[in-house]
Amino acid sequence: MPLLEIKSLQLEFGTGDKALRAVDGVNLTVEAGETLCLVGESGCGKSVTALSIARLVPTPPAHYPAGEILLNGRDVLKMDKRELRSIRGGVVSYIFQEPGASLNPVFRVGSQIKEALKLHRPEVATDAEVARLLKLVGIAAAESRMRDYPHQMSGGMQQRIMIAMAIATHPKLLVADEPTTALDVTIQAQILDLLLDLKQRLGMALLLITHNLGIVGNIADRVAVMYAGQVVETANAKELLRRPLHPYTKALMNAVPKTGARAERLQAIPGMVPTLGNFPSGCRFHPRCPKVQADCREKIPSLVEVEAGRGARCPYWQTP
């Protein structure tokens, strides 16, 4: 049994005719100890999908017309409040993009970490355990640093505090939503290294959400690419980077400049990222797709396994 299995999940905001479907039939699986990268541009539904795992999207305005989110075999969408409280932190922990905005500015970082311990591991809610966690995430002088307020730390340090808080409860799954986007490149490399190291040491699974395909190669086992509320391609990380199959993934990879290989011109993807409520008919990528066919405009393609372990939502993936 996989640790996390999301089955044809749908998520809508609003009701009736005005309902906007942000997530439309997403299937994802995360095995214990595995790293899955969820890649996509803004508004593709990657964050709300990840937040749904611990039911962190407020309902209403959101609701789930269909689908299941099986965490250790139990459907999160059917859990009551008490059960949800025990899985939040207990099984799934989160870190977010802006560590400065996620920490409470009026409490010392040590007491914020201790708060998580009090809820899930009350027997070890001590300064010693907090110091051990801070050392684990690479903070020197942990005993004095735990008395700091968030504003006394740099962005990279704040993100380390967030990670310490997230792993304090021994979660089985760590969801990292763009954990390095707000950080400098050299600090980004540090944080990614730390996440990989902790994952191996603690045997956690990692669901990493990013818009940066470059991060994928360094950290992921498998990748799911999302576009306009749907998963358009899934593959092993190395395979995906070596040979992307879906036209969107290909276009995305060609659109980023590469160091050491100077091209005269970037191959930009024409048009705009469709916004929620304005998703095109048929294949949602068809207005921007370089190999669009007549029936792409009407027929909605489904995500099919095109090769062993690889899925693509495009019937023309073999067309050159």
């Binding site: 490149v185 190669g217 360094n218 190395k238 980077l241 590469k258």
Partner: peptide, 17 residues
């Protein structure tokens, strides 16, 4: 070396400061 690369044949040694 810290720039995340899309290149799958990327075998550069990363220097983490």
């Amino acid at each position: 070396s810290a720039v995340p690369e899309v290149n799958p044949a990327d075998n550069r040694k990363r220097i983490v400061l």
